[in-house]
Design a protein around this nucleic acid. Structure first.
Length: 600
RNA sequence: UGGGGCGUCGGCAAGUGGUAAAGCCAUCGGUUUUUGGUACCGACAUGCGUAGGUUCGAAUCCUACCGCCCCAGCCA
């Protein structure tokens, strides 16, 4: 739990969708005996990311909603890149999201023997054969979109010969690539997947679970439907690109000796603006050190989001809100950001912290004086309790909260202006002290002793409220300001000769070494996310040590002043045409403005 | 020159023939506020890729066209 351990209410407020309706109809019609059994089938060759989160929410969510269960099955049919490191990380991430799989995790490799037997059955039925052509010959023979395939010269081998060859493949008598097992379907089929697809290939690789017991491994198209059938899955939900594989899925289930016939249904993957969800590219970011590991808080992996301080409930809620459909669109990243703020606003305790300290001295406050103010840890939930905030003559405020020349509508501090120090008192800036370089280094103020607590004694309006820390009591902290990893909404959209790496945001991480936070914050344990009032949400990083607090910025608070100032400066009101003049058709599909990334 | 999908507001997405298209995000305006946060109120598609057709009536049915995505791994 990154937040506070409070019950994560799981809302069922997702919109209606076609998968939900299909399952409901199946139950209604008594299909699969009215059962609902789903599965989430990750390949253990990488870390789970936000895109997987959607699949997880759909797979587990549908089962949950209809009183069924969801299995966790590792699709470990290709030993080359798979590893137990990933199977552990995947389990951790799913559990973190708050889902429970039925029984123990399963592995496709658990069924290798059974799958082998099914293959023998197919051979005996004359539905599979050993092909001994080269990889190139097989590819050539498959034809293409426009050219029908041609049958392999080995297609009519006898059952005996096939059985013998297949057994010897298993026994390790042949080198990789020497033979494969193919389904005998139809080389003329318009769907390339049906042109005698490969069922098994020889791979003399060590498998993370079966070790060296096997040197032939089943292909996805063969192993997946069998795994589903063996586990008695009723609804096999997957992504759009498998639509073309469904006929093969059905062929396998129909022709192998299994009792059930699960149904595969495809839905659209999640694509998120300013984000990449491709295992290969994420791996590249890690391996080429553009980020600091799989859980670098800028990554879209679940482990990175966790480290960044994103609550799991916000991810689940986000997935519910984006819905499930067959369109492949790109979800606006602001929707995800909203879900994060929404949840954090509910559960993050409040503290004050100054990111870029500017000294403020209260001249009419006694040199050795001290006050302690009691402030609520949550403005809307008293059960969070309160914390003590020490106050003295010398404080720090954020440099951002002071301007020598106040722009229009500036509520914050400026020479001669009065503001409220949150929970404390009202102060007026009387003098600005600069160094030789002309840089403001200190502010002199006077306070109104009658305003203790922050209320104006005479009811005068003080619009600006600033956060602050006591210079004497504050604790030092290193703050890591994270921003979007990519500068553009679609990092995959690149010009000739460039790659998505050229879109990496050079300002996606800024480290502030000299931040100060109120003392109560050092009690917060690593992994928890808090709000620094008026600034944003921050997660206590695991790098925190006894003397050094490390905070990761999860996300900023919405900043309507920044927006206002931009508008004030910009002068030209740009958003005019949209108002009334119905600008005929929408034309520029490709380019959207997207939200401005927040500053670092 | 194939096969499989998809086209409803800037983004996601309801809607499944009934009489002028939910919701959320974004955007804009306002109220409350000791977070310029939160909350709350309001605005935001005479329009459903285009063109025809069927019908008393169509985003929903039919036809044609246009556009976008996926498929030619011994990856999943």
């Amino acid at each position: 739990m990154t937040t506070d351990g409070k019950t994560p209410e799981r809302s069922e407020d997702g919109p209606s969708n076609f998968v939900r309706e299909l399952i409901a109809a199946d139950i209604e019609g008594g299909k699969h005996g009215g059962r609902v059994q789903t599965r989430f089938p990750p390949e253990p060759n990488g870390y789970l990311h936000i895109g997987h989160a959607k699949a997880i929410c759909v797979d587990f969510g549908m089962a949950q909603e209809f009183g069924g269960q969801c299995n966790l099955r590792f699709d470990d049919t290709n030993p080359v890149a798979e590893d137990t490191e990933f199977v552990e990380a995947i389990q951790r991430d799913i559990a973190w999201l708050g889902f429970e799989w039925a029984g123990e995790p399963r592995f496709a490799s658990d069924y290798f023997e059974r799958m082998y037997e099914c293959a023998q059955h197919l051979i005996r039925e004359g539905l599979a054969y050993v092909d001994s052509q080269s990889l190139e010959a097989i590819r050539e023979g498959r034809g293409n979109f426009y050219k029908p395939g041609v049958e392999s010269p080995h297609r009519e081998r006898s059952v005996e010969e096939n059985l013998d060859l297949f057994a010897r493949m298993r026994a390790g008598e042949f080198e990789e690539g020497a033979h494969v097992l193919r389904a005998k379907i139809d080389m003329q089929h318009a769907n390339l997947n049906m042109r005698d697809p490969l069922l098994y290939r020889i791979l003399k690789q060590h498998h993370h679970r079966t070790g060296d017991a096997w040197c032939i491994y089943p292909m996805y198209d063969y192993a997946h439907p069998l795994g589903d059938a063996i586990e008695d899955i009723t609804h096999s939900l997957c992504s759009l690109e498998f639509q073309d594989h469904r006929p093969l899925y059905d062929w396998v289930v129909a022709n192998c000796p299994v009792d059930t016939h699960p149904e595969q249904t495809e839905f659209g993957r999640l694509n998120l603006g300013y984000t990449i969800v491709s295992k290969r590219k994420l791996r590249q970011l890690v391996e080429e050190k553009h980020v600091d590991g799989w859980d670098d808080p800028r990554m879209p992996t679940l482990s990175a989001l966790r480290r960044r301080g994103v609550p799991p409930e916000s991810i689940v809620r986000f997935c519910e809100r984006i819905g499930v459909s067959k369109r492949d669109g790109v979800v606006d990243v602001t929707l995800f950001e909203h879900a994060i703020r929404d949840r954090l606003n509910e559960v993050a305790p409040r503290y004050m912290g100054v990111l870029r300290p500017l000294k403020l001295v209260i001249e009419n406050y006694p040199e050795d004086g001290e006050d302690v103010f009691h402030a609520p840890l949550h403005p809307e939930d008293e059960s969070y309790g309160r914390r003590d905030i020490p106050f003295c003559r010398e404080l720090y405020i954020d440099r951002e909260d002071f301007r020598e020349e106040a722009p229009r509508k500036w509520f914050r501090l400026a020479p001669g202006k009065e503001v409220r120090l949150r929970y404390a008192c009202l102060v007026t800036c009387t003098e600005v002290i600069k160094d030789e370089a002309g840089e403001v280094v200190e502010l002199r103020c006077t306070w109104d002793p009658a305003s203790k607590g922050g209320k104006a004694p005479d009811g005068r309006k003080v619009k600006g409220t600033l956060h602050w820390v006591s210079a004497r009591h504050a604790k030092p902290a290193q703050v890591r300001l994270y921003d979007r990893l990519f500068r553009v909404e679609n990092p995959l959209d690149v010009e000739e000769g460039k790659t998505f790496l050229d879109h990496v945001n050079p300002d996606s991480l800024a480290v502030l070494a000299d931040a100060r936070v109120e003392p109560a914050l050092v009690e917060v344990e690593a992994g928890r996310t808090v709000q620094l009032e008026r600034t944003g949400y921050f997660c206590v990083d695991r790098d925190t040590t006894e003397g050094q607090l490390v905070l990761n910025r999860t996300i900023t608070l919405r900043d309507s002043w920044a927006k206002l100032e931009k508008k004030l400066k910009g002068g030209a009101p740009m958003v005019k045409g949209q108002k009334k003049g119905k600008n005929k058709k929408k034309k520029n599909k490709g380019e959207q403005a997207g939200g401005a990334p927040d500053k670092a």
